[in-house]
Computed example of a mutant assay.
Amino acid sequence: MTFTPTRAIVTGSDSGIGKATAVALAEAGMDVGITWNSDEAGAQDTAEQVRRLGRTAVVERLDLTDVPACGDVVDSLISQLGGVDVFVNNAGTGDNAPFLELTLDQWRHTVTVDLEAAFVCLQRAASHMVDRGQEGRLIAITSVHEHQPRVGSAAYDAAKHGLGGLMKTLALELGSDGITANSVAPGEIATPMTDQDDVDPHGVKRPGVPLGRPGHAREIAAVVAFLASPAASYVTGASWAVDGGMLQMGPQAGSHLTSDDWRTP
């Protein structure tokens, strides 16, 4: 286990899972590149938490709707950090519209942000790793909907399925360069994206989840930190569901539903 990561980039690290992940990687001894789109104050707060841990933090704005330019932001962060050992593609968006009502613009926005921009950012980070002849870790935050669809989320489901497939292909192609590629697929996590900012998930009841509650962003970050560590040196091409057992509920949910309410997004 010679791989010792000291430099990481976490996109969308101004809040939620991204913020928790940036802090977890700093706790593991890494300097961290932080990005934000609309919440600069949140990104600066993340940077301050990283610095309090004795690590360097650099901050850049990343607009994933500007696909060609987002790779340049990754380059800038890598230059400021002096390299990159771990790249976490966390930033993303979602949609909530029935398929027959989903507009082409909505579809393109979600697929652009969640898949096309991810491709550009991951490719740019991987290119730096390969050019420097170093081992590396590529980690994508997908969703349980990488594996199972959700009513009213056609574009999101398609993008997350695609991102999961991309990571598996990267595992095949980059393994000989010592670069691993894995996904982390969260279930419902108490974050601003689920309108549960600063909520203790242990006090929220979710009967349909085996653990009975949503997850905390730190519970996702802990899995990312493991995948970024030397201990995960033989893990690649995997998708880690961190969902309180949600994905195991298919037949049980199907047999215990008592109304058609689930058909409405």
Score class of each variant (00 low, 15 high):
residue 71 G to V: 05
residue 66 D to N: 15
residue 119 F to G: 01
residue 38 S to F: 15
residue 5 P to S: 04
residue 210 P to R: 00
residue 77 L to S: 05
residue 180 T to Y: 03
residue 37 N to C: 08
residue 247 L to P: 01
residue 168 K to Y: 01
residue 239 S to F: 09
residue 115 L to Q: 04
residue 53 L to W: 13
residue 169 T to R: 12
residue 181 A to K: 01
residue 232 A to F: 02
residue 182 N to R: 07
residue 212 G to A: 08
residue 240 W to C: 06
residue 18 G to Q: 03
residue 168 K to F: 03
residue 254 G to I: 05
residue 80 Q to M: 15
residue 67 V to Y: 13
residue 1 M to D: 10
residue 118 A to M: 06
residue 206 R to E: 09
residue 186 P to K: 01
residue 221 A to Y: 11
residue 152 G to I: 08
residue 168 K to T: 03
residue 103 T to Q: 06
residue 256 H to T: 15
residue 212 G to W: 06
residue 256 H to W: 09
residue 35 T to W: 14
residue 261 D to N: 08
residue 193 M to E: 04
residue 210 P to A: 00
residue 234 Y to N: 08
residue 35 T to D: 15
residue 90 N to I: 01
residue 165 G to S: 13
residue 101 E to M: 10
residue 223 V to R: 02
residue 36 W to Q: 04
residue 84 V to N: 02
residue 253 A to Y: 06
residue 112 T to E: 10
residue 66 D to G: 03
residue 40 E to D: 15
residue 260 D to H: 03
residue 28 A to I: 02
residue 237 G to Y: 14
residue 59 V to Y: 12
residue 43 A to Q: 11
residue 102 L to E: 08
residue 35 T to N: 14
residue 183 S to H: 03
residue 219 E to A: 03
residue 92 G to N: 10
residue 111 V to E: 02
residue 123 Q to S: 12
residue 111 V to P: 03
residue 70 C to K: 00
residue 152 G to A: 11
residue 92 G to S: 11
residue 118 A to H: 03
residue 168 K to H: 09
residue 82 G to N: 07
residue 185 A to T: 01
residue 163 L to S: 04
residue 148 Q to C: 08
residue 157 D to Y: 14
residue 216 H to Y: 12
residue 80 Q to F: 13
residue 62 L to N: 13
residue 69 A to F: 11
residue 184 V to R: 10
residue 218 R to K: 10
residue 40 E to M: 15
residue 129 M to G: 02
residue 213 R to G: 11
residue 210 P to V: 01
residue 53 L to H: 10
